[in-house]
Design a protein around this nucleic acid. Structure first.
Lengths: 306, 306
DNA sequence: TTTCCTTACGCCTATCGTAAGCATA
DNA sequence: TATGCTTACGATAGGCGTAAGGAAA
C-alpha cells in the first residue's frame, strides 16, 4: 500500500508536469522523486505519468489518482487539525446529564457561556435522574452531570454551581397569602407536601433539618419526588410546600410564592456539577475551568426576590 | 504530518488495547510499535492512549482519531484498488462521441456489449458533428468517435465497424412505389434530394460516384446534410433520395424504402470508429480489442432487407 | 515473580543527494 | 549542446529487533 508522502510527491509532479520543478517544490532533488513515483507506479501496478524526454503527461490512471490523492491529503490534513483541536479541548464533544431542576435556571445560561467559549465543541445533553447520571459518569457515558448534592462517590469530583433559597408555595386564596412575610411557625398544623425520603433525599433532609430547629411541625400529608408534582398538588389544594425559588419558572398559575423570614434569606438549595476524576476530555477541563473562574469566590447565589 | 502506516499501527493498538498483541497482529515486535504511537502522538500534539502498566485506554482525542483513521485507511484501500482497475481498463471512464447516424444502428448494441464486458467503466456519450469529434479526439476530450469515413488525420487510427446498403426513399403514392425493384435508371429526370458537398461530403461523393457509372442523372433539387432532413423533404414531396438502410429506423410514416438492383446488394455506406494513436486509456484498448474480435473477418454487414 | 509498556542500543533497510547515463530537440 | 528523466552509488537517517529498565499486581 502507498503512503501519504508518495501521494504528496505524485501531486507535485502531476501539478507541475515537470520532475525538477516538482522536486524543488518538495525541497528535495529530482532523482529520489523519480524513484518515489516509480515506486508508487509499481505498488499500484499501473503507470501514472507518461514521460518522454520532452514532456510529462498524466495517464488515465494518473488523472484518476490525482483526484483521489487530493481527497485523501485534504482529509488527512483535516483530521490532523481536528485531532489537534480535540486534544486541546477546542473541539470534540461533551456529554452532559442534567436533572429537570438544572434545566430551569443554571443550564441555559451555562450552555450559552460554554458554547461561545468552545464554539466547535458538540454538547450532547441528556435529561436523566440523579442515580443514572452517577452511573453514566462512572462508566464514561457522561462527562459532566448536573444534580442536587448527594453522597458523593470516591471517583467523582464536584463543585457547587448554584445556590438558591427555599420559598413557600401556597395555593391562591390560602389564608397565608395575605401575609407578606411568613415564618416557619405559620406552617404549624398545616397540611404539608413533603419530599420523598428516597427519590428526593436531598430536599427531604433539607426540610427535615429546617423544622428540627423549631417546635412547630406541619402535617405531612404526601411524599413526592418531583417539584412539578408538588406544585400540582399545592394547586389542587392538597397542602402547602417548600420549594426552591426557581420553581416559579415551572409554574405560576394558581400558585403564590412567599418568602419565609429566617429561611429565604439564605440560599439553602444547591446544584452541583459532577465529573469523574480521571476523565481526560480536554473540553471538560475547559468547562470546569470556566466555571471556576466565573465563581472565583462563591457559587452563583440566587437572591430571594419577590 | 502522519503517515498511513502510523494510522495502521494506531488502529491495531486501539482495537486490541494491548501493545504486544497489536504488535503481533502487525507482524512486528512491541517496542517499535510503542515508538510509532509516541511519534504519532507527538506529531498530533496530543496523547491518544492512556496507558499505565495494567491497562491501555483511548483518550478522547484517540477515540476521535480512530474514527477518522478508519475512514482514511478505507479510502486509501478503495483508491488503491480503483486505480489498479483503471490501470487495467476494468474501471474508469471512456468519452465517446457519435453522429446521429451512429445512434440508430450501431451504438445501442455496441454499448450493451461494452457495458457487459466492462461493467465498472463509465461511458460518457456526446452527440457531436464529425468535425468537432475529430478535434475533440486530438485534444483528448474524446477517447472514441463514431462517424462516417473522412479524410483521416495522421494522429488518428480508425476501423470500420458497420457497412450498410443504400436504398431509395420514396414518398407514399409515388409511381415508383409499385415497382418492387428499382434500378438507378428509374431516377432519370426525377427531382432528387442530394447530400451537401460540404457538410455531408461522404454521402455526397458516394452518390456522385454511383451516378457517374451510368448515363442517367436525376435532377438535383436540394442539398441537405442530415438524413432526417432528407426524409422530411421526401415526405413533403420535394423529391426522392438515396439513404442508408438504417434510415428506416428514423422514419417510416409516409415514406417507402425500396432496394435498387445493382446498388442495394452491396453495403456501400460505412461507419467508422476513430481514436487517437497515443491514447493510453486502458478501457479504450479493451473496446478496440472487443470490436476487433467481434469483426474478426469483416465489419458487421447489414444485409439489404425489405 | 510475572506482566507489560518504555528506554537504550546496534543493525539494517530505505531514502536521500551526487554523479553519470542517455535520449531528444 | 542543453535539457530532462533515469540509473548508479555512496552516505545517512529512520525503523526494526534485541536487551535492559521500571512499575504494578
Amino acid at each position: 500500500m502507498f503512503e501519504l508522502n508518495q501521494l504528496r510527491c505524485f501531486v507535485a509532479v502531476a501539478e507541475e508536469l515537470h520532475f525538477r520543478r516538482a522536486a524543488e517544490r518538495l525541497n528535495m532533488t529530482q532523482p529520489p522523486l523519480s524513484r518515489q513515483i516509480q515506486l508508487l507506479e509499481y505498488q499500484l501496478g499501473t503507470s501514472l505519468l507518461q514521460r518522454n524526454n520532452r514532456s510529462v503527461k498524466l495517464t488515465t490512471a494518473g488523472r484518476a489518482l490525482l483526484k483521489d490523492a487530493y481527497e485523501l491529503l485534504r482529509m488527512a490534513q483535516t483530521t490532523s487539525m481536528q485531532i489537534r483541536r480535540v486534544g486541546t479541548g477546542n473541539a470534540g464533544s461533551v456529554a452532559i446529564g442534567f436533572t429537570a431542576a438544572a434545566s430551569y435556571r443554571y443550564l441555559p445560561q451555562a450552555l450559552q457561556r460554554w458554547k461561545s467559549r468552545l464554539p466547535d465543541v458538540d454538547f450532547q445533553l441528556r435529561e436523566m435522574v440523579s442515580m443514572s447520571q452517577l452511573d453514566a459518569l462512572e462508566n464514561g457515558k457522561l462527562d459532566l452531570a448536573l444534580l442536587r448534592p448527594l453522597i458523593h462517590r470516591n471517583e467523582l469530583e464536584h463543585r457547587q454551581v448554584i445556590r438558591e433559597p427555599l420559598m413557600a408555595a401556597l395555593p391562591e386564596g390560602d389564608p397565608l397569602v395575605s401575609k407578606r412575610h411568613l415564618t416557619l411557625d405559620d406552617f404549624a398544623g398545616r397540611q404539608f407536601i413533603h419530599y420523598s425520603p428516597d427519590e428526593a433525599r436531598y430536599f427531604h433532609e433539607l426540610v427535615e433539618r429546617l423544622f428540627e430547629r423549631g417546635d412547630v411541625r406541619p402535617l405531612y400529608s404526601q411524599y413526592v419526588s418531583q417539584i412539578h408534582s408538588i406544585l400540582a398538588l399545592v394547586y389542587g389544594g392538597m397542602g402547602i410546600a417548600l420549594v426552591p425559588e426557581s420553581a416559579n419558572k415551572l409554574r405560576n398559575e394558581g400558585i403564590v410564592y412567599r418568602n419565609i423570614t429566617g429561611v429565604s434569606e439564605k440560599p439553602l438549595v444547591s446544584l452541583d456539577m459532577v465529573w469523574k476524576k480521571g476523565n481526560d476530555n480536554p473540553a471538560l477541563a475547559h468547562i470546569i475551568e470556566a466555571e471556576n473562574a466565573l465563581f472565583a469566590t462563591d457559587p452563583m447565589e440566587v437572591k430571594a426576590s419577590e
